[in-house]
């Protein structure tokens, strides 16, 4: 069983760890509509990255669900943060919105010339998306996007523990 999936000229990797402390070109933060970093990973981004990230976010005001806004990484080990406003708490049309949010992350990254992105399991945990559902939607969206002409070279899905890792690992290997 592999932790890596090749799609066209790009690669998707699964890793375990805290992605807010990762040395990588960009990371995705599952943001709220008011673009306040808040607690959880937002707290880690504030603590490790410093106040400049929230300052930059404040200039955007609010964002709609599926929107993605990009800030610098402050003092984090990443250069860019893609703040992706995903659907939450079993809201209506959740799957479609989640897919569009992930698609918009890739599109926005490409616009900014970003080649490497670290994703958390999108919408899982606090916001209630089941790991299996998130894995399926993430891989489907990556497959569709990366099969076309793209400059994105690498996607890393960062998972906290075995409970999160196993469903993603199974989904990845279902494909390969």
């Amino acid at each position: 069983m592999s932790d890596t999936l090749n799609i066209n000229n790009s690669v998707v990797d699964l890793v375990k760890g805290d992605y807010t402390d990762m040395e990588i070109e960009s990371i995705v933060y599952y943001a709220q509509n008011d673009l306040k970093l808040g607690s959880g990973f937002g707290n880690a981004i504030s603590m490790r990255g410093g106040p400049s990230i929230q300052d930059e976010l404040n200039k955007f005001g609010e964002a709609e669900t599926t929107d993605v806004v990009v800030t610098a990484g402050g003092e984090l080990k990443t250069r860019h943060i893609l703040h992706a406003v995903g659907p939450k708490f079993q809201e209506e049309y959740l799957s479609d919105k989640l897919k569009k949010t992930i698609h918009n992350c890739l599109k926005k990254a490409e616009e900014k010339g970003i080649k490497t992105i670290a994703f958390p399991p999108m919408g899982c945990g606090f916001y209630g998306v089941a790991l299996e559902v998130s894995a399926d939607i993430m891989f489907k969206t990556f497959e569709e996007y990366l099969s076309g002409d793209t400059s994105i070279e690498k996607i890393v899905i960062c998972l906290n523990d075995n409970r999160e890792f196993i469903p993603f690992h199974e989904r990845l290997n279902k494909n390969s």
Binding site: G38, S39, G40, F41, G42, N43, A44, M47, R48, P120, G125, F126, N160
Partner: peptide, 13 residues
């Protein structure tokens, strides 16, 4: 959210 994402309920890094 702290406990889901950071792994403890006070967000201690």
């Amino acid at each position: 959210k702290d406990q889901w994402e950071i792994g403890n309920q006070m967000g201690v890094l």
